[in-house]
Measured scan of single mutants.
Amino acid sequence: KELVLVLYDYQEKSPREVTVKKGDILTLLNSTNKDWWKVEVDDRQGFIPAAYLKKL
């Protein structure tokens, strides 16, 4: 499984997104879309802008 580091706080703006904090380490589920990556946060799955994440 691939992990990503959150570079900036992000507040979800729709039900398909998730809220994260800078410094969080998340499981990356899908990065095929270059703009929005799907991650897992506390048993929730959702999207975050790829620019907010860095692969570890």
Rank of each mutant, 00 (worst) to 15 (best):
27 T>Q: 12
23 G>A: 03
56 L>E: 04
36 W>C: 09
35 D>R: 11
53 L>Q: 01
27 T>F: 11
50 A>N: 04
21 K>Q: 12
44 R>V: 08
48 I>V: 15
24 D>Y: 07
24 D>A: 12
18 V>L: 14
22 K>V: 07
36 W>R: 04
13 K>I: 07
10 Y>S: 01
3 L>E: 06
19 T>E: 03
24 D>T: 12
6 V>L: 02
6 V>T: 04
15 P>C: 09
42 D>G: 15
5 L>G: 03
1 K>C: 13
51 A>I: 13
8 Y>H: 14
12 E>F: 10
15 P>S: 13
4 V>K: 00
30 N>C: 10
36 W>Y: 10
43 D>N: 13
50 A>S: 13
29 L>W: 04
35 D>I: 13
40 E>Q: 15
29 L>P: 00
7 L>Q: 04
18 V>W: 06
18 V>H: 03
13 K>R: 14
9 D>F: 03
21 K>F: 09
25 I>V: 14
51 A>M: 15
18 V>C: 07
31 S>Q: 09
19 T>H: 04
50 A>L: 02
3 L>R: 11
48 I>Y: 01
48 I>H: 00
47 F>E: 05
47 F>H: 06
30 N>S: 15
43 D>S: 13
48 I>M: 14
53 L>H: 00
32 T>G: 10
14 S>T: 13
38 K>P: 01
31 S>E: 14
26 L>E: 01
5 L>C: 07
10 Y>T: 01
50 A>Y: 02
29 L>A: 04
34 K>E: 12
25 I>A: 02
55 K>S: 07
40 E>W: 08
39 V>G: 00
49 P>Q: 04
3 L>F: 14
16 R>E: 12
49 P>N: 04
32 T>I: 09
51 A>V: 14
3 L>G: 03
3 L>K: 13
4 V>F: 04
40 E>R: 09
15 P>H: 11
47 F>L: 09
55 K>V: 14
8 Y>C: 14
32 T>L: 10
26 L>V: 13
49 P>V: 02
5 L>Q: 08
43 D>T: 12
12 E>Y: 06
19 T>G: 05
21 K>N: 09
33 N>C: 11
49 P>I: 02
1 K>G: 11
23 G>N: 07
47 F>I: 08
37 W>Q: 01
42 D>K: 15
6 V>K: 00
8 Y>Q: 15
17 E>W: 04
7 L>T: 04
8 Y>I: 09
4 V>S: 02
41 V>Q: 09
49 P>L: 05
31 S>C: 11
53 L>R: 00
44 R>T: 07
45 Q>M: 10
52 Y>G: 08
6 V>D: 00
31 S>P: 05
4 V>A: 10
2 E>A: 11
5 L>N: 02
10 Y>C: 02
1 K>Y: 11
35 D>T: 12
48 I>R: 00
28 L>P: 00
2 E>S: 12
13 K>H: 09
55 K>D: 05
51 A>L: 12
32 T>P: 04
5 L>I: 14
34 K>P: 15
51 A>F: 11
18 V>T: 05
22 K>R: 10
30 N>I: 07
13 K>E: 08
20 V>M: 02
9 D>V: 02
55 K>M: 10
32 T>N: 13
18 V>A: 06
51 A>N: 15
33 N>R: 09
2 E>Q: 11
9 D>N: 08
50 A>I: 04
48 I>L: 13
37 W>F: 05
25 I>L: 07
35 D>H: 14
30 N>G: 07
50 A>C: 08
46 G>Y: 09
2 E>V: 13
27 T>C: 11
13 K>G: 08
45 Q>P: 06
17 E>R: 04
30 N>L: 09
5 L>E: 11
36 W>M: 07
37 W>M: 02
4 V>R: 01
39 V>A: 02
25 I>M: 06
47 F>S: 03
49 P>W: 03
53 L>Y: 00
34 K>A: 13
24 D>S: 11
55 K>I: 12
6 V>F: 00
19 T>Q: 04
49 P>H: 04
27 T>I: 15
35 D>C: 11
19 T>D: 03
9 D>S: 09
54 K>Q: 15
11 Q>A: 12
34 K>L: 11
22 K>Q: 11
11 Q>G: 08
7 L>V: 07
25 I>E: 03
34 K>C: 11
24 D>F: 07
47 F>W: 15
34 K>T: 12
41 V>C: 10
7 L>E: 03
21 K>P: 01
20 V>G: 05
33 N>H: 12
53 L>A: 10
8 Y>M: 14
28 L>K: 01
10 Y>L: 01
37 W>L: 02
4 V>G: 04
19 T>N: 05
7 L>N: 02
44 R>K: 15
20 V>H: 02
21 K>Y: 13
23 G>H: 06
49 P>S: 03
49 P>G: 02
55 K>L: 14
5 L>R: 07
19 T>L: 03
54 K>A: 12
12 E>K: 12
47 F>T: 03
28 L>V: 07
7 L>W: 02
46 G>L: 10
45 Q>C: 10
3 L>N: 06
1 K>V: 13
46 G>W: 06
28 L>Q: 00
52 Y>K: 06
13 K>Y: 05
42 D>M: 14
20 V>K: 00
48 I>S: 03
43 D>P: 03
43 D>H: 12
55 K>R: 14
21 K>I: 07
9 D>Y: 04
3 L>S: 08
38 K>F: 14
30 N>K: 07
37 W>A: 03
6 V>M: 02
50 A>R: 12
16 R>F: 13
9 D>K: 03
11 Q>L: 15
4 V>N: 00
20 V>S: 04
13 K>N: 10
38 K>A: 09
1 K>Q: 13
33 N>S: 10
27 T>G: 09
24 D>N: 08
15 P>E: 12
11 Q>M: 10
21 K>M: 08
27 T>R: 12
36 W>F: 07
51 A>S: 15
22 K>F: 06
1 K>A: 13
22 K>P: 02
10 Y>V: 01
14 S>W: 07
53 L>C: 15
53 L>D: 00
15 P>K: 10
15 P>D: 14
7 L>K: 05
35 D>Q: 14
17 E>H: 05
47 F>M: 09
48 I>A: 15
29 L>H: 05
55 K>N: 07
1 K>H: 11
30 N>M: 09
34 K>G: 10
23 G>L: 02
12 E>L: 10
52 Y>W: 08
54 K>G: 05
40 E>C: 12
26 L>M: 04
8 Y>W: 13
31 S>M: 08
52 Y>T: 07
15 P>A: 13
42 D>W: 09
51 A>Y: 14
45 Q>A: 12
39 V>F: 01
46 G>Q: 05
22 K>G: 07
50 A>F: 02
22 K>S: 08
6 V>W: 00
20 V>A: 11
22 K>Y: 05
26 L>Q: 01
7 L>I: 08
43 D>A: 12
35 D>S: 11
16 R>Q: 14
39 V>Q: 00
46 G>H: 07
18 V>I: 14
56 L>K: 03
24 D>V: 07
30 N>D: 15
54 K>M: 15
26 L>C: 10
12 E>Q: 14
14 S>K: 08
55 K>P: 09
25 I>Q: 04
7 L>A: 03
40 E>H: 08
19 T>M: 04
20 V>P: 00
28 L>I: 05
3 L>D: 04
45 Q>L: 07
44 R>N: 06
2 E>K: 09
45 Q>Y: 08
19 T>S: 15
23 G>W: 05
40 E>M: 11
28 L>S: 02
32 T>Y: 10
40 E>V: 11
17 E>G: 13
44 R>W: 10
30 N>H: 08
10 Y>R: 03
42 D>H: 12
23 G>I: 00
6 V>Y: 00
55 K>Q: 08
46 G>I: 12
56 L>I: 15
17 E>N: 06
39 V>W: 01
40 E>D: 07
7 L>P: 00
23 G>T: 01
33 N>D: 15
48 I>E: 00
29 L>V: 14
3 L>C: 11
36 W>T: 03
15 P>R: 10
5 L>W: 06
